[in-house]
């Protein structure tokens, strides 16, 4: 059974055992506007928690996406190459960025769950 976590930098990570999928939140895609390009990490890349893992671009801005936890990239979402707009239309499903194999699941403890993240972004807009 998978569990969803969020970071303060608006990444989400959906964890199932030591396998996880990472993307950016609906709040983040709204703030960025129309996404025009996503640079996904290559397979096999080792990421430490907080490393720059991907870049997401709108017309006038580029933002780094950080690794929520440490691990190794298993695959990038190649669908984003053809259709970066998936990040806008389905940020928390088809618009995922990459799959990773966690190296230290204990790091998940520092992240927020869905409810905590909802409270967190409410605080940002206030």
């Amino acid at each position: 059974m998978s569990k969803l976590y969020f970071t303060e930098d608006h990444e989400w990570i959906n964890v199932d055992g030591s396998d996880a999928i990472v993307g950016i939140s609906d709040y983040a895609q709204q703030a960025l506007g129309d996404i025009v390009f996503v640079e996904i990490p290559e397979e096999g890349r080792a990421l430490a928690k907080g490393d720059e893992a991907a870049v997401v671009e709108s017309v006038k801005a580029a933002s780094e996406v950080y690794a929520p936890v440490s691990g190794t990239v298993v695959a990038g979402n190649s669908a984003l190459e053809e259709e970066p707009a998936l990040v806008n239309t389905a940020s928390q499903s088809d618009g995922w960025f990459f799959r990773m194999q966690l190296s230290d699941p204990a790091e998940l403890e520092g992240l927020m769950d869905e409810a905590a993240y909802a409270t967190y972004i409410q605080g940002l807009d206030g």
């Binding site: 006038k60 801005a61 580029a62």
Partner: peptide
């Protein structure tokens, strides 16, 4: 593709 450029990406 101006996100490659200095006025947006600055030091990157």
């Amino acid at each position: 593709l101006s996100t490659r450029e200095q006025h947006i990406r600055r030091e990157k």
